[in-house]
Write a protein that binds this DNA or RNA. Structure first.
Lengths: 212, 212
DNA sequence: CCTATTCTCTACCACTTGGTAAGGAGTGGG
DNA sequence: CCCACTCCTTACCAAGTGGTAGAGAATAGG
């Protein structure tokens, strides 16, 4: 039956925001409660402990992320188009929901328990990605190498470019929508050279890839 | 004059280890004190607050890191050899002092104050790196692109491959010395394709690149 | 020997943390 | 009307947090 309130929902959202930006340890249940206009025990009613709240947030967020990325990838053509679609999706998330990507980082930082919880939900995506990479390699569209290791590289590169705000700032790139577009383009170019063999015909046409 | 004890030194080391592995918020002064076999107030004698301890640790660590990397780079020849030397240095650190790289991650996560402190010390390295990249580009040895953005990509890729232990584990790669060598090789290959134009003569000989 | 300095200690504290216990208000069904 | 259930509350707590105050031990210099 439908619950009478959406408090549980709101707790999850607030927790995602807090965990994803400040980090798990730097977030207190009291603080969350205040933000929600609710007593701390209300949070503990829905989630028996802070750890279980984290688990719930990680579960939901990783599922959300996986869904988002799978959708973006499925909508793209074969070959490098999929990589490009993935990068675009990640950058879209970095702008609309930076806390989500932040939580991913945080979750893999918090040790095996949380990390495995995270990657269990991401497993389908990982499998699909490795399968995709291997297929592209045998088709000769991508350079041949270890697909798993390659995936780690792509993961690090994309997530880094999308989330390492302080690094950008330190290097003299103020994070903004404008520079995000430039960063995205650079990442795509970077990955294309890294993945696709031969001269990739460098399309000056920005993105219109649909045949016509 | 030389201090009569090395306590300050030991505090810094223990703090680096704890901050770099567990994170700043998850580390308490009491815990550090117990590990050191010393009262908490001894720590606070040398560092008036936990925040200032962090600052000191970040300062020292970033200087150490910069020194280590500059040394590795300077000892390498021109062109891609320097990138390779950098990757090797980072992986060496990832094995011998993982907490150092962990602290770098942590520091850029803890907000502008700590991050700027970090990158002030890394600024020479950053300048040298961007200068190097630009020089290589004009020399035609590297593909032409925005040097700063490229640097962010390289940074993310290398640091990610060296530190994202849980990601590796989740993907089915148990972190070990053996896989570290494979990862390092893959990263170097990956970066070479991304950076160096044309077919780079893909050396089947593993690493002996010295003319002979 | 005396004193100043360096270093570490004991004793304490205000505050925050995650969490327990239990009760009360609203609601829906019998 | 009453019972059971959902939802949120007040009241409270033990443990841990970063940090202050100040004393005591050791050493070096005069």
């Amino acid at each position: 039956m439908a619950p009478r309130t959406d408090t549980r929902e709101r707790v999850l959202e607030a927790a995602l925001l807090a965990f994803g930006t400040q980090g798990f340890d730097a977030t207190s249940l009291d603080q969350l409660a205040v933000e929600l206009g609710v007593r701390k025990q209300t949070i503990l009613y829905y989630f028996p402990s802070k750890a279980e709240l984290l688990d719930a947030v990680v579960d939901r967020s990783s599922q959300d992320l996986a869904g988002e990325l799978v959708r973006a990838i499925d909508g793209a053509g074969p070959g490098f188009d999929r990589i490009e679609a993935l990068v675009r999706a990640v950058f879209r998330l970095a702008l609309s929901q930076p806390e989500l990507l932040g939580l991913i980082r945080e979750a893999s930082r918090l040790g095996p328990h949380t990390a495995s919880r995270l990657f269990v939900n991401l497993a389908p995506l990982v499998d699909q990605a490795t399968g995709f990479l291997e297929a592209e390699m045998t088709a000769g569209r991508f350079r041949k190498t270890d697909a798993k290791l390659l995936l780690v590289s792509v993961y690090s590169t994309v997530l880094g470019a999308a989330t390492e705000v302080e690094v950008l700032r330190a290097i003299g790139i103020e994070p903004s929508l404008r520079t995000a577009v430039l960063r995205r383009r650079q990442i795509i170019e970077f990955l294309r050279y890294a993945l696709v063999p031969e001269a990739p015909a460098k399309p000056r046409t920005n993105r219109t890839r649909r045949n016509g």
